[in-house]
Structures are given as C-alpha cells and as structure tokens.
Simulated assay, not measured.
Amino acid sequence: MPHRVSSFAVALAALCCAPAAAHDFWVQPEPYRPESQAAIALTLQVGHGRDRQRSAIALRRIQRFEALASDGRRVDLRPQLQPDPRAPVDARFAVPAGAWMLVLETDAGAQSRLPAPRFNDYLRAEGLTPALEQRRLQGRDGAEGSERYSRRSKALLRVGAGVAPAEVAALLARPVGLPLEILLDADPHARGARLPVRVLWQGRPLPGALVKLTRLENDAEPLDARRTDAGGRAEFAAPGAGTWLLNAIWTRPLPADAEVDFETTFSSLSFEIPVQAPR
C-alpha cells in the first residue's frame, strides 16, 4: 500500500540545500476555469515560497506545448509561447469549451553538478533511493554528482460551464506520453475522501517514487508527501479549495562514458478546486 513518508521534515530540510534543478516546475494558467474561447494567460513557474519565480527557460528547449481534449482533439500552443520572466505572461491562448489538459515538455539540455554531500542530500530529499544505492555500490557516494534533466508538466483546464465530469475523469486518468507522468484516478472536484494518484515511468507503474502535494497559495513547503506502492499508486487525503500541485522526480543512470552520471525527469500536474465545487 502507498504510505506517508517518514522523517518528511528532515527530507524537506535537506531539499533546501538541493540544487536549483530540484525546484518544482509547473505551468500555471490564469484562470483554470475560463469561459469558452476566453483569453487564458499562462506563466511558467519554478520554486516554492521565497524561492518561487518565473522560469527563465529558453523557448528552444521546449519541445512540446499543446492542449489535449478527452475526445482526442489537439491544439498546438507552442506558437503562442514566448517565455520571458520580464513580460507579464509567457503565453496567451484560447480553446473551445470542455475539459483540456495542457502538456509541456522540455529537452534534457540542462545540467547540474554538485559536491557529494549536497548531491546525496538532494537524492534523499527527492526520494531517489536507487541512485543513492548505485552511488554507494560503485563507491562514488563521496564523489561529485552530476545529472542532466528535463521538465514535464500538465495542467487541467475546465473551459466554459457544464463541463461533464466524465470528460474530466477521462483526461486525468489517461496518459499523454510523458516519460514520467502523474495521473489521477478521481476528479478532485468530486471531493471524495481520498485523492488517488498513479505514477508511470516509461508507460509502466513506478514503485517507490516520492509524490508531493503542495497548495500553491501557501507553497513554502509541500502539504504532504507519499511514496508509490508496487503498482505505482499513492493516496492523499482529499484537498480542499485552492490551486494544487502534484510533483514527482525520477532518474536513471547513464553509461560510464557519458558526460554526466544520471538523466533526471521532473514531472508535475496542477489543478484548481473551487470554493463551491459540485458534489
């Protein structure tokens, strides 16, 4: 069964010493519940609390930015994307009524190198125990650690009035082809007793991943964190009204002749629960 992470406060303290690459990244539409064909403003966000800021990622690194509907419609939004922290927004766009999933993917062109203590603390804080164990077995837990990394983010939109719950549920539970992907097996608007999460790695259930749940209106630290079970599943207590972020990280070792030790993927899913959610 999925379980709550023990010594979570210790892990969060270690995370404060982690590299900038460990900061959570997400796409944030305003609003999450627009009128049909109304303009939606979007920003790319990174970090939490005092470290939260607009992402300065270069457009050339963004390989995919699109909106997907439950009926298979796709809208390529990359032409509307001009990332610039100095501008009011990074993109403006509109989509027809219905449930839509925004999907953004970057390349793995960014790199991070850290002294051994900081790299090991980062791996522990993010639950990357296989990487820690590999470093120990190779006698490299006292050596500098390095990685290249990519970002994969989703955000749920409900456009217009009367969006069918079945439409939303289908989008939340359906993979969109990300190498590391967070899925929900229930619509958080339904306000059930639990929020069931699934994590896939290369299309298969991922056990042992650390999933964090953060309320973005008060994001100095995650509200909760759970590890996935053998089936890649975890459960949180159902969150209340607000804007929420789920995120997970996974890494894989690279060959000995590679420029860095690991390739790491950061994945997130953001969504909003209104004060007056339907029951």
Rank of each mutant, 00 (worst) to 15 (best):
Q138M: 04
C16A: 11
R61S: 12
R194I: 11
R52M: 12
L245M: 04
E144D: 14
Y149A: 02
G98C: 11
L114N: 06
R252I: 10
G162Q: 03
R227D: 09
I62N: 08
R135H: 07
L213T: 00
P255T: 02
D219R: 03
N247P: 10
R215F: 08
L171V: 02
P117H: 08
T228L: 07
R204Y: 04
R73Y: 08
A22T: 13
H23V: 08
L245C: 05
W26M: 07
P278S: 11
A39S: 11
W201F: 09
T214W: 02
L246Q: 00
P85R: 03
S70G: 12
L210Q: 04
P274Q: 04
T264L: 13
A91M: 06
G127R: 00
A155M: 00
R140T: 06
R4A: 14
A248N: 10
A13F: 08
R54S: 11
A67N: 04
G109L: 05
A190P: 03
A166K: 09
A248W: 05
A41L: 13
P207I: 01
P96V: 00
G242D: 02
D76Y: 06
A241M: 04
A9C: 06
R33D: 10
L213W: 00
A164K: 11
G160F: 05
D141L: 04
R140K: 14
A225R: 07
M101Q: 15
L81H: 07
I57G: 12
T243S: 03
P179H: 10
L15T: 10
A38L: 05
L128D: 08
L59K: 15
D257R: 13
D121G: 11
Y122M: 12
L206F: 15
R158F: 07
T43L: 06
P83S: 04
A170Y: 07
